[in-house]
Structures are given as C-alpha cells and as structure tokens.
Amino acid sequence: MKNMHTNGNNGSQTTPIIEISDLKVHYGDKSALNGISFDVYKNEILGIIGPAQSGKTTLLKVINRTLEFTSQTSIEGSVKLDGVDISTIGDVYGLRRRIGMVLPLPVGLPLSIYDNVAFAPRTAGVRAKSELNEIVERCLQQAALWDEVKDRLDTLGTKLSGGQQQRLTIARALSHQPEILCLDEFSIAVDPVTTMRIEDVLDTLRTEMTILLVTNLVQQAKRLADRTAFMLNGDLVEIDTTDVIFSDNPANQATYDYVNGNFG
C-alpha cells in the first residue's frame, strides 16, 4: 500500500472529460438512475462507491453505450465526452475503444493470451505483426502480467488463474489505448495480493488516462481516488474530494454512515 498518500486533488485537474447532466435510465418500468449530474475531470481517478442496486454499473454501460445491447431500456439526459454528446456519435465502436472497460468477473476470451490482447487492435484493423507484438507487450507490461506469461503467450487466456485473468482483462482494456479506463468492482473475484498489484497498476496509469473506479471496497476508493462519488438507489448522494468524503463531516449523513460501515 505504498501509494496510500499519492492521492488528493490537485487543482489543475479540472478540465471535464465527461459531463453527465440529468441522466435518467429506466429498465422497463424500473428506474435505475433518477437524474444524476456530475463531471469527470481529465486524468483524475474518480471513485464511485455505493451499495448494490445503486446504478453504478448502469452508469458505466451508458458511458460506453453497451446498455444498447439490453432491451427495454430508456435513457434520458445527456452524457458528453470531450464536449460531444455520445448519443450523436456515429462510430459507436470507435467510442467504445476510447473507453477501456473492466468487468467484475475476469473474462479471459477463449483465445490465446496474445490473441486476447490483440483482439481489439485487430477488430480495429491493425494487421502488422510488429505493431501487434508491440501492443501486446506494452499492455501486458502495463497490467503487470508480462513477466508471468511472456514465455507462454500462446496459452489459452481461459487457463490462467482468476487474478491473472483479471490482469489480462486490464491488458485487453488498455490495448486500444483508451482515454478513460472504467473498472467495475474489479477486485470482487481476485485475491488481496492481486488486488494490490492492480491498485499499483492503476496508480501508475493515472498520469496517462482518466480512471473511473467503481468499487464496493470503500477503502479502495480512499486509497486511490482523487474524488469520490457516493451513489444510492439511482441517486448521486454526494461527490467531493476523497478527503472530504472520508472525513468526519461530509455534506450528507448517509455518506458518513456508508463510508464508516454503519449503513441501514
């Protein structure tokens, strides 16, 4: 936990990269997000905490427009990426490549380790072997997996351990050089040691990209996030610097209760 004190908001990081305004999402009749608004700043780590059913995953799916694969959903309000409303972006596949997504359960695609990482560049049209080699090595290095797998890149990704698969997933998410990296409770299925290795990885990535860290471990947000948002039942209760959220007097009593584990 050597990065414990590297966080804290630095005043220059206030250019918004994502602007969310009055975002409402319904699954059928059920409301998942009831009108939330906030900005994500360039090169910050924004922690998003909150209990189950609070709309965190839905929020991420709206941002990379994969919610469109779920039927019977309706979205109101707007999400802007670099000032452009994402619903107006024609090349949705290009949009998704600007955002790296890491899901709760590690998913090694049933391909070799190499092909796992080369998947996104290939679908985007990269064919040159040397370029692919370079991407695969860089991403596996960044995800702290290279040393463990460099001699067996043709092994199936599905044969790796859970912790390795999660780092493979992160390597894959980095393979299309995203500007924003979204992690959805990445530590839910990995051991504490791997969790800490990945936290180190995120700490080194913070200079290169914006990171949205959805987590069910409030301490993880405290360790890594510059700012933290607390969501509850589809509402954004509070968003502020991590120091304020975890202080003795955040703006909202519910935030204090949740962060200190005496919720409900």
């Binding site: 994969t66 290009g94 679908t123 299309h176």
Partner: peptide
C-alpha cells in the same frame, strides 16, 4: 454471455464477435 460483453466492450461489432468468438466455440 460474458464473452460477448467483453468483445463489445472492446469495440467489436456483433458480427466480429460472432465470427471470432461465438461460432468457433
């Protein structure tokens, strides 16, 4: 389903997902 979601998140089209992951498996 998680294989498909992983592919979509990487910017693959439905057909790319089907051809590279779903059909071979």
């Amino acid at each position: 389903m998680s294989f498909r979601e992983a592919c979509w998140n990487l910017g693959a089209t439905r057909w790319q997902t089907i051809r590279r992951i779903v059909l071979p498996n």
